[in-house]
Each structure stands twice: as structure tokens, then as C-alpha cells.
Simulated assay, not measured.
Amino acid sequence: MTTYPGAAGNGSSQSQQGDNNAGFGQRVDQIGSEAQQLWTDARGAVTDLGQALDLRGRVERNPYGMMAAALGVGYVLGGGLFTPMTARIIKLGVRLAALPFVKDELLGMAEQALQGYQAGRGMAGAGGADSTASANATSAGTPRPPSY
């Protein structure tokens, strides 16, 4: 038989039953008061958290942002984190996040190619001017067709 603190008896069945009922009642009262204390502590913690986060002020300053945050928290708490839709959203987000890096790389490659083309054209233009002059000197009497 289980005995509770504060339950005392002489071993007879009637006195044990009476003492157990008194001990049980005390235990129920103790659990009730502990539950009430826990509830009070929890409400106080929520109030403190609300004051620390300044939720009312944030909602007043940025209502759409707070709605989006609430939607996101609800989505996660509702079990939407490990769904195929979330995987697609994350893939899209990664692609969009990588887009500026890819664009910068492509622009850098295009600039290098353009610089190389201009440098090669400049070298060909310098060497080409001499070859054009010598070609004109050899074919001085022949008219050249116009270039378009």
C-alpha cells in the first residue's frame, strides 16, 4: 500500500482508509496549488517575452511584415517544414540567391573577352596598317571595290 507524507495510522484498515483519504485530499490540494503557480509563472513569462519583443509596437510599425512572420511561424508549427512544397520553395530561393553571383561571373567573363578582343584588334590594327600600306603600294594601279 502506498503511503503519502503526512499520512499516519495505527495499522487498522479503517484508520488507514481515513488517513489515506486525508492524505489524498492534501495531495490533490497541493497539485492544484502547484498547477496554479505554474500557470501564473507561465503567464508572467509570456508577458515578459511580449514586453521584451515589443510585439504591439512592431505590429504598429510594420503590420505586413508581422503578418508574414506569423504566417511563416504558423507554417512551420503546422508541420509544413518537411513537405515537397517547402523543398520547391527552398530550391527557388537558392536559385534566386545565386542569381547575382552568376550574373557577376558572366559580366566578368564578358568584360575579359571584350578586353581581349579589343587588345587583339589593336594589335592587328597596328600590324594590319603596315600590311595594308604595302598592299596598296603593290596594287597602286588597280582600283579597289568599295567596302560596306
Rank of each mutant, 00 (worst) to 15 (best):
A133W: 03
Q26M: 08
A135C: 01
L114D: 12
E111S: 07
S147P: 03
Q118S: 06
L92H: 04
K103G: 11
F82P: 11
L53D: 00
W39G: 13
L96R: 08
I31T: 04
S147D: 09
R43W: 01
S12G: 02
A140C: 02
D41M: 02
Q30D: 07
Q16H: 05
A124T: 12
R144K: 10
A42H: 11
T83Q: 03
A70I: 07
N136S: 13
A133P: 00
I31C: 04
D19E: 12
Q16Y: 14
G141R: 14
A42I: 07
S15L: 01
T132V: 12
W39A: 14
R58C: 00
G78W: 03
Q112K: 11
R121N: 11
L114K: 11
P143L: 15
M66C: 06
G72Y: 04
G23V: 04
N21W: 03
G23N: 12
P100N: 00
V102A: 10
S139W: 13
Q51T: 11
A45L: 05
Q14R: 12
L114C: 06
I89S: 00
P143Y: 10
R88Q: 07
G65R: 04
D48R: 03
A45P: 06
M67W: 14
T83E: 03
Q112P: 00
A45V: 12
P100D: 05
A126H: 08
S13C: 12
R88C: 01
M67N: 06
I31R: 10
S131Y: 06
G125T: 07
Q17R: 05
A35P: 03
Y117Q: 13
M123Q: 13
N62I: 02
A42C: 14
A68I: 04
F82H: 15
T142I: 11
N10C: 11
S131F: 11
Q36D: 14
L53Q: 02
